[in-house]
Amino acid sequence: MTQPASPARPVTEKSPPPDGAAGPWRALAARADLRTLSLLGVLAALAVIGGVTQPDAFLDTDNLQLILTQASVIGVVTVGMTFVIISGGIDLSVGAIVALASVWATTVATQEYGFAGILFTAVVVGLGCGLVNGLLIAYGGMVPFIATLAMLASGRGLALEITDGKTQMVTVDGVLRLGERDAYVLGVPPLVLVFAAVTVVGWLLLNRTTFGRRSVAVGGNAEAARLAGIDVRRQRLYLYLLSGLCCGIAAFLLVVLSGSGQNTNGNLYELDAIAAAIIGGTLLSGGRGTITGAVLGVLIFTTITNIFALNNLETAVQQIAKGAIIVAAVLVQRRASTT
């Protein structure tokens, strides 16, 4: 900080007082915990339902690994989406970016560069799309809904253009092997480890860094943030870059998981990611949200899908159940916040 010698003498830091966590703060923490606990409760209830309806299949290690693996791809996307929503924005293009990054990373030309080429391409394509989104929104003054809707359309189109509608099989051994059982670390698939790492980094970024604070400030009150001296536009650019980066990582995970790249990848991810963030307690209007809640939201949705699949129920019923959960979660949170 280069600030001129101040006659007002900036307040000097003192050692934190012993009563750092006083009553109201504890109450606040308790309420945040209540939300997390209720999400955990829903997850536990789902586990019971799964265990009762399909005692053998559901609790099988393979099945649990499958749930976590499936949650990984959408989970990584959701972490980025949560940041964007906290900042008062929205990113409708995440599914399209995942599709574009996955097919670009699996073209014959890219695969010539092996593992690193695929990973690098997926990440760079994700970042590139995020950059375009961010520039349009932060500096072009476009509404996030419109800019990312345009990216959704163009991204899907470009993905179709690249693949010509065909599935691009992965031939790089290193990539394929990551999805196999041999690569599991202590029974945990590498994809899940990536998901866990992204979650931890996301949590730290939101709660322990100036980046997180600025994101929350921009979402909570962009005008106040601007007048407080925060570079709101640059922050918005960074946030869409972050979302794009997450999509790139997710695309790589999807390539590993499916052993291929398809232009239909990531279909409706935007809706799943938004829904997971919302039931996790993120305000769609911005200014408040948690990574923990969003990740629990992802796990809840993935578990429901799994239980419905195991019980051979139609996807139609599954969609209805998801919709009902979103409504219920938001109603519960509204009640909790008004009382």
Partner: peptide, 26 residues
């Protein structure tokens, strides 16, 4: 509308313009 982050604590409202003083590398 123009100054406060109404969802946040007093601490965060006070520190928002001086965050670089309490951070190293973000």
């Amino acid at each position: 509308a123009q100054a406060l982050l109404m969802l946040e604590s007093v601490t965060r409202n006070v520190s928002v313009s001086s965050m670089s003083r309490f951070s190293r590398g973000g």
